[in-house]
């Protein structure tokens, strides 16, 4: 199968964040950047599908500044065959604009399957996969926690509110990947060496108008320091009293 995976470069999700000088970006000093967690799962899914199903090709796409090339190389060191960098000058928070750039590139690619993460850590928006599918006119399954492909059709499990569902769909299709589906492999030394010779193509991203812009970033207010009500079951009456009279939630 020919599989595309759209990946994003994001800061390590375990970082402690500070807001940068002008109040409209995070301070990047000291932050580690890597492939977004969900994009990592999507790459692993693509690699496993092609390993199981025989000859195929996997291609990664990223919209971003030059720094995303490092992330694309990492994907190739995991086993992806080639990479396409759609270049922009800075981060883009407009999901539809990113989708347009991806769709323009994916349109003529002849892919059987196009994978995305469920959401990206920084934007936390769950927009790009679904919007790209819509622009391409392809069926779209969001938040798949299991995915099987057989004779031109896909079956996926999705986790929805309070339940799971099994869906079936024809290929070509877009699927956004939830966690729990596959643990991304570590690049091997051989993989890292091989990635240096794999093709990485760069071209300008066709974003169209950017209509969502960051005006400010701030850290959420700290919660007031916690309070210990007491020890063991003996603390229960006081806890219930506080829930009734102070917090008024009971």
């Amino acid at each position: 199968m020919k599989i595309a995976v759209c990946i994003k470069r994001t800061p390590d999700s375990e970082s402690r964040f500070k807001i940068g000088g002008n109040g409209s970006a995070i301070d990047e000093t000291g932050l580690k950047f890597d492939m977004d967690d969900f994009a990592g799962y999507a790459i692993e899914v693509a690699l496993q599908l092609n390993e199981k199903q025989g000859p195929g090709e996997s291609v990664v796409f990223a919209v971003g500044p030059d720094s995303v090339q490092e992330t694309l190389r990492k994907a190739m060191s995991m086993g992806v065959d080639r990479a396409v960098h759609l270049k922009v000058d800075g981060p883009v928070f407009d999901g539809v604009a990113v989708s347009k750039a991806l769709a323009a590139e994916l349109k003529s690619g002849g892919f059987d399957l196009i994978l995305f993460g469920k959401y990206a850590f920084d934007t936390s928006a769950s927009i790009v996969g679904t919007a790209t599918a819509e622009l391409l006119g392809l069926p779209c399954v969001t938040a798949a926690s299991k995915l099987e492909i057989a004779s031109g059709r896909g079956t996926a499990r999705r986790e929805i509110e309070g339940a799971g569902e099994i869906v079936e769909f024809p290929l070509p299709a877009v699927v956004t990947i939830d966690e729990g589906i596959a643990r991304p492999r570590y690049p091997s030394l051989k993989g890292i060496m091989a990635a240096k010779k794999k093709p990485l193509e760069t071209k300008p991203a066709q974003l169209g108008p950017v209509r969502v812009q960051v005006k400010a970033m701030e850290l959420p207010p700290e919660r007031p320091a916690g309070k210990i009500v007491g020890q063991g079951a003996a603390a229960v009456p006081e806890l219930v009293r506080l829930l009734q009279n102070e917090a008024k939630v009971l």
Partner: peptide, 9 residues
């Protein structure tokens, strides 16, 4: 955004 760690306007 940033998994609830940053409020983005």
């Amino acid at each position: 955004g940033y998994a609830n760690k940053v409020i983005v306007t």
